[in-house]
Design a protein around this nucleic acid. Sequence first.
DNA 1: AAGATCATTCTTGTATCCATAATGGGACTG
DNA 2: CAGTCCCATTATGGATACAAGAATGATCTT
Lengths: 243, 243
Amino acid sequence: MPKSGPSSHPAGLIEEIAEKIHARIISGDYKPGERLKQDLLAEEFGVSRTPIREALSKLDARGIVRLEMRRSATVSVPSPREVREMYQVRAELEGLAAELAAEWINDAKLRALEAAHEAFVKAATKLRAAKTARSRESALPKLSLDWIGTNEVFHQCIVEASGNSALARVLREVSAGYVRNLMLSSAAETNVLRMESNVASHAAILAAIREHDPARARAAMVGHIREGGDFVAAWFERRQVKS
Amino acid sequence: MPKSGPSSHPAGLIEEIAEKIHARIISGDYKPGERLKQDLLAEEFGVSRTPIREALSKLDARGIVRLEMRRSATVSVPSPREVREMYQVRAELEGLAAELAAEWINDAKLRALEAAHEAFVKAATKLRAAKTARSRESALPKLSLDWIGTNEVFHQCIVEASGNSALARVLREVSAGYVRNLMLSSAAETNVLRMESNVASHAAILAAIREHDPARARAAMVGHIREGGDFVAAWFERRQVKS
DNA sequence: AAGATCATTCTTGTATCCATAATGGGACTG
DNA sequence: CAGTCCCATTATGGATACAAGAATGATCTT
């Protein structure tokens, strides 16, 4: 497993708590508009209010909660429209990453990217087999996690290969965590078709980068992210009416 | 003066302190690699360590300081290369904003944008006059501030007109504050030529948006930001060898 | 009875405190 | 004399304490 990033590692309690709160928001435990009181969260997670505060601050920066002066943090689950907006931004940024990667990638990073792709294909294959087999006791959650993880590694490789550290930071800070949590929740409903489409997209992106074709790499990446955005937004719409 | 954004307003002490620390880093009071001890900062600003910590966390997210586990925050003044990287990201995001704005802007927002442009032209004219006159006691700092402010309003109008709130948030969070502080320091050295080029760029962007030409709006904006990035990076190089 | 006002309570923002991990210096040894 | 190991010092992360500003509810007035 590669280190999670080239940049600073608070790596600590705060980020962990932020992720947990985020997960609960996505899963619907905390409903939109609900007021998140620091005391309760502190008790919930068995820590004091201090790390809770910092976690909430991060979630505010990511647009997941709204933090106003002297008022409780309020859950701000995005509308499907906002999900689309976020993916539009992410598409732009990762498109840039792919373009730069196609231009500047070196042999070592290319090999790493190819390895990441292989791992992703393997994970997808296994997950697909498990899904079609419908075997009850198969470790489907674990396979889903693998799928998400290898997917993330692939994208991260490209960002790293772009050689633009500011880009890497922005993606980490404003979108990466969000996407991960969304995928964790929606992975269960991801069907075989979508998985195959994802594999194909990754292959196309990899090919464009290998052949140092920036324009094609960008286009492929933008399309890939948009596709994912459509799926997640749709899933979000369904979930919203359901709850 | 327009409100600083459509989104959440902690608007508080933390943000204020973050800006102050940032300004001191840019101005060179705190040198690259220097370790920022929370105690000292706390005394410096006459507050306790708690808000200092949160401010440092924000600065870490913005890439201005590096925050590692159980270690002091270290000043991380970007290399000219990193400045360029940051502007590349910003160009991408604001380019997207311009593209979307050209597509979706409505009459009210267009009028606001035109007003912002007029204010910018006016501020630029005054500043240019003051610079060429070289009158000693003229309120040159104030005029510089006006120039920076109106410039920011113009860009913000476009972002708002894009109708993509996620985009607005990302720009605010990761790049806007940075840019503002950089400009505050480098404005003094901005020459007349650059100011005129800036005015021309803004006019071109405005025209493209008015005529609903997304591709042209994006291209104009990307070029404009890149130009600014080159200038700031160059200024940064000069300053780095000087210190 | 409805609305407004004021007091109480609750929650956040900031300060202070304590435990733990890093740092730097000194002593000891090869 | 240099290198290394260990301990004291110091600074950070987290917990607790305190003050101040909202939200709420009760009471009084019209």
